[in-house]
């Protein structure tokens, strides 16, 4: 096997991993702050994907421009979902929160999947633009532009989120609530609103990931579970509480999968990622980048 092939494979792994990282960011924030597990996160990614697909096909909107509709759209959907459903869950103590959010998320999965099948049919959809599969070639290594944009967008989102969490009122409120909601409440932070904003933010991030998923691969009503699982693995690999850590863990997972495929062949690629995850989980339950409090 040539050096070019090895480098090319690992590069592809890193680029696909950046998508894992983006998909996990929203889930991680919601999980860390609200202490609920939204198993319908993958379905939100799916909705974001369809949003871009239809914006492209009906309005002729470039997928990157469609983010201006899709991200706020998913933010609103997030608001509605939290307002109508998950807000009722966060009133419980932590144990019940997880359980009930799991159940509601599962019910939501059923509804959204079936609804999407009805509205959009079960066919695979993808967005193909003139630049879809364009690539730069450097020293015999090809850098696909669309995938590279995923990495860049990921980095921008990470930087922006860090700024948001550290510099803005809502960001500080979110961090304080994640740390200890009782203390935050005593400090005069409106916990309910913080939860609402956080959940909507998580949904918006899912929408962003959904656009990239559709542009780089395809979307169909049943992609949700697969992405929820990937996102969960990344979240646990990274541990809670670190935005750059979550993204980086996604990239690392992608690279690890590629490396394993080179070493053992393609059939065990997905498995190796999970096994690494299980090993890390049993040695370091708080994750690679998580604080010890998790």
């Amino acid at each position: 096997m040539s050096i070019e092939t090895i480098v090319q494979t690992l590069l592809f792994g890193a680029l696909i991993g950046s998508l894992y990282g983006l998909a996990a960011l929203g889930l991680s924030i919601v999980f860390g702050v609200l202490k609920i597990l939204n198993v319908a996160h993958g379905e939100l990614i799916m909705l974001g994907g369809y949003g871009s697909f239809w914006a492209f096909n009906l309005l002729g909107l470039d997928p990157y421009l469609s983010l201006l509709i899709v991200v706020p759209g998913l933010f609103l959907i997030g608001l509605a979902l939290h307002f109508g459903l998950f807000a009722r869950v966060v009133r419980f103590d932590e144990e019940d929160r997880i359980k009930n959010s799991l159940l509601i998320g599962f019910g939501l999965t059923l509804i959204l999947q079936t609804l999407a099948t009805h509205l959009f049919t079960a066919d695979e959809r993808s967005i193909t633009t003139s630049y879809s599969t364009a690539a730069w070639e450097i020293l015999g290594i090809r850098l696909p532009l669309v995938r590279f944009s995923g990495l860049i967008i990921g980095i921008i989102v990470v930087v922006a989120l860090r700024w948001f969490l550290r510099r803005t009122y809502w960001g500080k409120a979110i961090r304080a609530t994640a740390e200890d909601w009782r203390t935050a409440a005593l400090a005069g932070i409106d916990i309910r609103r913080t939860y609402l904003v956080t959940f909507a933010l998580g949904a918006a991030l899912a929408g962003l990931a959904g656009m990239l998923v559709t542009l780089q691969g395809s979307v169909s009503p049943n992609i949700g579970l697969q992405w929820t699982l990937k996102a969960l693995i990344v979240v646990v690999l990274a541990g809670l509480g670190s935005v750059p850590g979550t993204f980086l863990a996604g990239v690392l997972l992608g690279v690890a999968e590629s490396a394993s495929a080179l070493a053992f062949g393609g059939a065990y690629r997905e498995l190796v990622g999970i096994v690494i995850f299980l090993i890390i989980l049993s040695i370091r339950p708080q994750g690679l980048f998580g604080g010890s409090h998790a």
Binding site: Q8, F12, G254, S258, G266, A267
Partner: peptide
């Protein structure tokens, strides 16, 4: 002759093996 599991996201190593 390369194998993969259904649902794989990244086929680059297999495609490169075909190319090589």
């Amino acid at each position: 002759h390369e194998e993969y599991t259904p649902g794989t996201q990244d086929f680059s190593d297999l495609i490169l093996a075909m190319r090589d």
